[in-house]
Design a protein around this nucleic acid. Structure first.
Length: 792
RNA sequence: GGGCGAGUGGCGAAACGGCAGACGCGCCGGCCUUAGGAGCCGGUACCGGCAACGGUGUGAGGGUUCGAGUCCCUCCUCGCCCACCA
């Protein structure tokens, strides 16, 4: 950068003009836009997808255009950009696309509040975010951009849904939602307080059963537990494993006993992980949602049971599963018969059993399960121990459940199975039940099918038409996309406006032409985010969602980076989606990505999540104007380990800024002697010239070795620290007899190359001056090759 | 409640099981300056000492080891996630 007359820098102010020893200082305001424009003109970051070089697909989670792009977005994107540049310098063909996760609830909230169209709100935010993301000098290939609210994108969500439907991977089922009489379905975050009131109108929130669409992802439960083709950080792998929650046990069929109000003989299936404790079952518990509750409940218990079910429905699953909560439940006035010994045991309905897990019913063994124990104590039910260590058989169970079983324990009080080990006894009991058709070995999962229906406007319409004679009819593929109407009137309420939109609603049945109604639910936005990186490869493709040839060459994605808050949901849904694509025959791939890294999250200065409503967002624009994009980039990498995050604090930004100025000074003016340095111009510790030259060379190559390793391991904070150390070392030699010599020159060259991925503008500027000074033709530092370590 | 992480100077943080605190901020001192909220050099874990040096130190308590910030157990505190926020 040459001194610009319109923008005086510190060094060329008039009162400085008489100071010839002053070094020209780096002016980010002039330099950064200049190079950004140059890179754009040269198309430096447009990826040729059909190139033969080694492909490196680097994917960063696309942002939600919330309208408050904050420093946290930069914290995510900046190191990713540095990784891209690092790989380019290794000669790889790097693809780093970007897009926007444009559907979702916040746009609707803003629309209702401010009476604007969600599309306008979203697109305005996207426009601003594009500008901000460009200002950081990131190497995104904008030609590949994807916006999920674009009909050309969501059309393919609909297409995928229809394929899944055909393949039997999608189905419709009733399931409960949180419902407000004024605002319709509510998200969890829209239900406030223990009172469970609507955030918008304060009305009491109810549960309502709606017909909703599911994707059959539980089909992949076992396969999802296999992580051999995907490198996850350990915590993510563990969280997904727990989420899928594979339990091995048995399904056992109890029968209801005859009573005054009931003939009996009705099968009641339970799942248990401990079939060995079947003789210890002293009662049975069914979930409030269990389909047989109504028919089994004795008339005199009816009122009590109904009241209990109503109460249970007002609670969240998290509350229901809380183990330190007092157990509640009511007897339904019916008994079940234990298939192993014919014993009659009472049936209760209790909320600690969930309708959605296992069979929605359990055999309760209070001696060997903590929850059953607590319930038994609460209701004075018998507790019978059936597993014990030798000599311990008679010991009472009163301190709590005794659930551990070790090798020296044997079954007791278990009829002909007494004396066997728990494992052996369990196996034989299951075998016996199986022979009688009263049970079988079984595996259950905590993972549930993916509920994709949302009672919202701002999402992908589910392409179904309900005909009075033909039922749920898929929209023909040729009629896709089912477009969201542009005109939308919320009438100040959260209720999905599609349900009132006559033009949208009324269509003929595709089969018979009779007047029919469109589905008004839209899709979960996790659907959008489950395949967007495939679309990046051919975002304008008209005749299909994905270019399958490019897909084979570029995916699985080499590296995916994003926030740890997505550990289970997005990162699991997307894996499921890829497996479904495979089962549709579109690909052979089993996993969407090869390697995933999770960065930490930048919180506000108050330690809370950054959001406009909390008023704790840090706007990156101010910082860029003040310090320059390079300083902000470097600071974000330097502040701590990338996977850690933490509260935002700009303290220390000045130190990074100073480092950049020092690099500038080293490269621009090696022979300058600092007047404030008593040792300026002398070699440290009375070193000989030869020793000094060797020391410079050793420092540069040692740094290269360490910095290369740090880039590879995403240890950006120590990478910056090591470059600072090298700069400090070089500063000790600045102005001395070795400064400007060949070893010095090599060290400067390495320093610039190593810094280039992290601080692309200042290094490009210094690089261009360096080439000019040598009379060499210009070429971008970002196309230079990463240097080789020479540890001579 | 459950799952997953994290606790190290005044602050952000370093540290293959091997001299704890690299690097940076802040602070203190010096230099250079008409000037300094610029730049440069030096110091800075804590307690004691002018100093050499001595003692104490990685949330608390136990354990493994020749040796533990690091590995194991118990506990405390904080953060993230728990299926309609994305």
């Amino acid at each position: 950068m040459t001194a610009d007359a319109t923008k005086p820098t510190r060094s060329d102010r008039p009162d400085r003009a008489d100071r010839p020893d002053r070094v020209e200082r780096y002016d980010h305001l002039a330099t950064e836009p200049k190079w950004q424009q140059r890179w754009d003109e040269l198309g430096l970051y447009k990826t040729k997808l059909d190139d033969t070089r080694k492909a490196y697909y680097l994917l960063t989670m696309y942002p939600y255009p919330s309208g408050d792009l904050h420093i946290g977005h930069w914290y995510i994107k900046t190191p990713t950009d540095a990784i891209a540049r690092f790989h380019r310098m290794h000669g790889e063909n790097v693809f780093l696309p970007i897009g926007f996760d444009a559907f979702g609830l916040p746009a609707e909230n803003a629309a209702i509040k401010n009476k604007i169209n969600p599309r306008d709100w979203t697109m305005r935010n996207i426009e601003n975010m594009r500008r901000q993301l460009r200002s950081m000098g990131a190497t995104f290939d904008w030609d590949s951009e994807v916006v999920t609210a674009d009909p050309e994108y969501y059309k393919w969500n609909q297409w995928f849904f229809l394929q899944f439907l055909k393949a039997g991977l999608a189905y419709r089922q009733k399931s409960p939602v949180d419902w407000c009489p004024n605002d319709g379905t509510l998200a969890r975050e829209q239900v406030e307080g223990v009172e469970r009131r609507c955030w918008r109108c304060g009305a009491k929130v109810e549960k309502r059963d709606l017909e909703q669409w599911y994707l059959r992802v539980t089909k992949y439960a076992d396969e999802l537990l296999d992580f051999s083709e995907i490198q996850f950080p350990d915590p993510i792998r563990i969280q997904q494993t727990n989420w899928i929650g594979r339990s091995v046990g048995a399904e056992i069929v109890f029968e209801t006993a005859p009573s005054a109000s009931h003939a009996g003989g009705e099968p009641l299936r339970v799942f248990t992980t401990r079939p060995d404790t079947l003789f210890g079952a002293t009662f049975m518990v069914i979930a409030p949602e269990h389909p047989l509750v109504g028919s089994l409940t004795a008339p005199e218990k009816q009122a009590q049971v109904e009241a209990y079910i109503a109460k249970a429905q007002a609670q969240t699953e998290i509350e229901r599963l809380s183990t330190d909560r007092e157990k509640t439940g009511v007897s339904i006035g019916a008994d079940a018969i234990n298939p192993v010994n014919g014993e009659r045991i009472p049936i209760f309905v209790a909320d600690y059993v969930l309708g959605g897990y296992g069979t929605g019913a359990i055999m309760a063994v209070p001696a060997h399960d903590e929850r059953d124990y607590a319930f038994a104590r609460q209701f004075n039910l018998p507790i019978r121990r059936v597993v014990a260590a030798p000599g311990d058989e008679a010991a009472a169970v009163d301190g709590g459940a005794y659930s551990a079983h070790s090798d020296d324990e044997r079954l007791v009080n278990s009829g002909e199975y007494s004396g066997l080990t728990a494992d052996e006894g369990g196996r034989r009991i299951v075998a016996m039940l199986e022979a009688q058709g009263k049970g079988k070995a079984a595996v259950t999962y905590r993972l549930r099918d993916w509920l994709i229906s949302r009672q919202r406007y701002w999402g992908t319409p589910i392409p179904i038409i309900y005909c009075p004679t033909h039922g749920a009819v898929p929209v023909p593929e040729s009629d896709l996309p089912v477009r969201l109407p542009d005109e939308v009137d919320y009438e100040g309420s959260g209720v999905n406006p599609l349900t009132r939109d006559e033009k949208f609603l009324n269509v003929p049945c595709p089969i018979c032409g009779e007047p029919s109604k469109r589905e008004t639910d839209t899709m979960d936005t996790f659907m959008d985010s489950s395949w967007y990186w495939y679309r990046y490869l051919a975002p304008k493709k008209q005749d299909g969602p994905i270019d399958l040839d490019l897909m084979e060459g570029w995916t699985p994605v080499a590296q995916y980076t994003g926030g740890a808050e997505h550990a289970v949901m997005h990162l699991l849904y997307a894996r499921e989606f890829t497996k479904m694509l495979r089962d549709l025959g579109m690909t052979q791939q089993n996993e969407p990505w090869r390697r995933v890294f999770n960065q930490g999250q930048i919180l506000g200065m108050d330690g809370e999540r950054m959001s406009k409503s909390r008023g704790n967002v840090q706007d990156p624009d101010e910082l860029v104007t003040k310090y320059g994009a390079d300083t902000v980039r470097l600071f974000l990498m330097f502040m701590g380990p990338w996977d850690q995050g933490g509260p935002w604090s700009p303290t220390g930004m000045g130190g990074v800024h100073r480092f950049i100025q020092r690099v500038w000074a080293l490269a621009m003016d090696p022979t300058y002697r600092e007047p404030g340095d008593p040792a300026a111009g002398t070699l440290p510790d009375g070193q000989s010239q030869e020793a000094a030259r060797a020391a410079i060379r050793a420092a540069a190559h040692r740094t290269l070795r360490d910095v290369t390793a740090d880039y590879e391991a995403f240890h950006f904070n120590t990478m910056v620290a090591k470059l600072m150390e090298l700069a400090n070392t070089l500063f000790r030699y600045r102005g001395s007899s070795v400064a400007g010599g060949p070893e010095w020159d090599e060290a400067i060259q390495l320093l610039l190359l190593m810094l280039a991925p992290a601080a692309p503008h200042v290094t490009e500027e210094l690089w261009s001056r360096r080439l000019a000074a040598r009379g060499e033709a210009w070429s971008s530092i970002h196309t230079a090759r990463w240097p080789e370590v020479d540890q001579a």
